[in-house]
Amino acid sequence: MNNRYLSVDSVDKVFGTEPNTTRVLDKVNLTVEKGEYISIIGHSGCGKSTLLNIIAGLHTASSGYVILDGKEVNAPGPDRSLVFQNHSLLPWLTVYENVTLAVNKVFKNKKNATERKAWALKNLEMVGMSHALNRLPSEISGGMKQRVGIARALAMEPKLLLLDEPFGALDALTRAHLQDEVMRIQAELNNTVLMITHDVDEAVLLSDRIVMMTNGPEATIGEILDIRLPRPRDRIALADNPEYNHYRREVLRFLHEKQRKVAPLPKADKANPVPQASAKRA
């Protein structure tokens, strides 16, 4: 059981230069097994994206290290593919070209041209986007863009799939639909996934474990909750399942009792996470 596919070892992150520094992350430790689906939940600004970016290799940790499958992470790479909240598709490429850009690069020497093409199409089919291959990102809806982003990430066959609030900008119906789709794909591919979310239901429904982070600055992992609900999970059946509601209550209690923000949140985080999240990434 304890094969430590991914381990995050006392990772600190300090932003800024000497007199004006903020220690955003303080000694974050986390181990993840292969095939696990982990959700990271915590108040806005606590450092979830920072942690994900360190694991992706886009940021470097101030101290501590990340090891994936026996190798230390110190640069971004296609073995850790990302899906951002704001999809980050290239607007000048069609849906199909966005995926093939990744496929052609990652499988340059491993697959021939026809295989690469088929692989791109297969991944797009998996997220139900085969009908819009030649559309530009500006011509498809937010939910569809997110699907393409997921297809692109899956098509890289990553060791680790990193999702930063992948459904945050979507309406509730589209979000539920995509969550179901992700669960279906996850059952099929059994990826190792790390997903940031603000949505308690989403976390409980999708995850094997929920990592709850304390408030920043100097945020760290407060509690980890094991979700032992059998799969496949059905959102309607679970709605009045006492175990499900117990997990839900645990997460809510952590967020709203133990880690309650002292000051009122500047504009409720769940309602409007987009500008803040993207501003910090920029």
Partner: peptide, 26 residues
């Protein structure tokens, strides 16, 4: 945008690929 550069970094595009596939079109 940072996002496009991140795409290039995750895919490990080399200098030439980055120039023709990301920088010029962006």
């Amino acid at each position: 945008p940072e996002d496009y550069r991140n795409v290039a970094r995750v895919l490990r595009l080399n200098g030439f690929e980055n120039f023709t596939k990301i920088m010029l079109p962006a």
